[in-house]
Design a binder for these strands. Structure first.
Lengths: 302, 302
DNA sequence: GTCACCATTGAAAGATATTTTCGGTTCGGT
DNA sequence: ACCGAACCGAAAATATCTTTCAATGGTGAC
């Protein structure tokens, strides 16, 4: 029997499908994209169609439809269709007001705030839905037990890398963020089994970040990639891949914005996970760092 | 095609299936009742089964299963199954309880993800609701017209400061982030009317950040504070105050986490606002920086 | 520019699932 | 005991889904 795992597909909340389509779209061929788009835009309608029907609707072939279903993580079209039916039902029951419009040049500032907040919320939901908790758990375990951890990130992702290291340092772990590619590589050489190297790159193809990860990978360290493109170059050298969501970008809202939100959520999850594992030492360390900073704040607040 | 009317089956509210089974049970034969009962008691489980599977489970034959499906009002088993999938999804989503509890040490990683995502969404909503758009608008105007902009932030807020400057630089504005208190002050001395100084501090009482803002304030620059405490020391020297939200912190989720989310939203709003104001120059600058980075990415990704 | 190669695609064959048919079985009535 | 009707399931028939494979078109090397 092929269709035993429907329950699991239900496990992920509804919106995740549209998100999945977005993250995987870049790695799809043109015809597959057509199919994916049809499915994402009208789940209910597509659920009513057979493979042949959907193939005709999208002007492709049955084979392509099945291929798309596979890429989206289902064993076959049958299961995609089942998931679609579920999705449609959910949509029907839960109203979707959705602020759909992009941010325009002449939007009043209040609209900008509302739209940005909404989109970032959306990004968070998508990311949470798309995160592979098994990989995440494995990454947490690796980090918690690591002798040392190196984190690579450039540009906006570099800030996320620093955020993670700041947090890890706070709970007594040894972590460094590298944004200088050369230093990153020379440090990566020092890594060995039991250490962790973590690369953060939205595109998954940032050479300056891939290179140190490759070195770490070859030295036997546990390598983790946080990327929006689970099929990109960086994953070649990653033992564990944590996927961030990709929301559609607009001219005034560059992709960097949502990828940052997404990356930070992943990083937070890693941190909390590690803090749980190392609670005995993490809790006092957090308290201590809080204490240490107290005197840097002016006492009276007016 | 037999399966054209799936949408309609969704139309009937979820619970009606169990009711329908009860109503029709008397008119059913023994084997059909077994099937109907199985379907009613575990829609999700049955949705995962093929006709043959369900027939075996209930100790009946495929024919009986199909007959039951017909009696329940569906054209065939295929459509019953689709409806079942929808029902299961609804049930699942229905029991999505508000995640109110704090993150506990022994929470499974999946719960951690859900709770973190939820809390960050909450933070975003709170921030958006609490933002003073008048002040925000004024800050945008100041930034858009500034000769130069200095941003102060320490620790986690320092990363937010860098995020803002990275973005502003991208659209051709002159902005610097300072995390070194001494350098910040020495640079602040250079500021004058028409320049902007922006301090980011959650507590509002971080001396190292207040000091340069005070200097800038006294030199006549437009000063902006992004803080979670609108009554704190930093606001003394701030012409404009943008308030970030403060959500309750827990042991495993330090305040830094939500304040960062909140600060980033404010910063994003500032950025988009400025990009709108300076659209003529910002749009091409954004495009250009995108181009410039393209070659740093390895080509093949698929 | 041409060629070789690889990715992409759809047609059709093959496999599976669903529906229908049909004959056997059971059960109640006579 | 016999008859008839409803009930049921095995298996054939059909629909649907999946896989294979050859044709196509695009891409990079030379």
């Amino acid at each position: 029997m092929v269709t035993q795992d429907v329950k699991e597909s239900f496990g992920s909340p509804g919106g995740s499908l549209a998100a999945k389509v977005r993250t995987l779209a870049p790695s799809m061929t043109r015809s597959m994209q057509r199919v994916a788009e049809a499915v994402a835009s009208d789940p209910a309608g597509c659920a009513a169609l057979t493979v042949t029907g959907l193939a005709e609707l999208t002007g492709t072939s049955e084979a392509t439809v099945v291929r798309t279903a596979r890429l989206l993580g289902y064993p076959g079209y049958r299961d995609l269709r089942l998931a679609l039916a579920g999705l449609a039902a959910q949509q029907q029951s839960g109203r979707a007001p959705a602020i759909t419009t992009d941010i325009a040049v002449d939007d009043p500032i209040a609209d900008v705030v509302a739209k940005l907040a909404y989109e970032e919320q959306q990004t968070l939901a998508d990311t949470a839905a798309g995160l592979d908790t098994v990989q995440l758990d494995a990454a947490v375990t690796a980090l918690a037990g690591a002798r040392r951890t190196d984190v690579y990130g450039i540009g906006a992702s570099g800030l996320v890398a620093q955020d993670l290291t700041q947090k890890l340092l706070r709970i007594g772990l040894i972590a460094h963020a590298h944004s200088d590619p050369h230093l990153a590589v020379t440090n990566a050489v020092q890594l060995r089994s039991g250490d962790v190297a973590l690369a953060i790159t939205h595109s998954g193809s940032t050479g300056d970040v891939i290179e140190p990860l490759r070195v770490a990978f070859e030295r036997g360290a546990t390598t983790v990639a946080i990327t929006g493109r689970p099929d990109s170059a960086v994953t070649q050298y990653a033992d564990l891949v944590l996927t961030t969501s990709t929301s559609r970008e607009t001219e005034l809202r560059p992709a960097a914005m949502s990828s940052r939100t997404s990356q930070l959520l992943v990083v937070d999850c890693l941190f909390v996970g590690v803090a749980q594992r190392t609670y005995e030492t993490a809790a006092p360390a957090l308290a201590a760092s809080y204490e240490a900073l107290a005197h840097r704040h002016r006492s009276g607040s007016r």
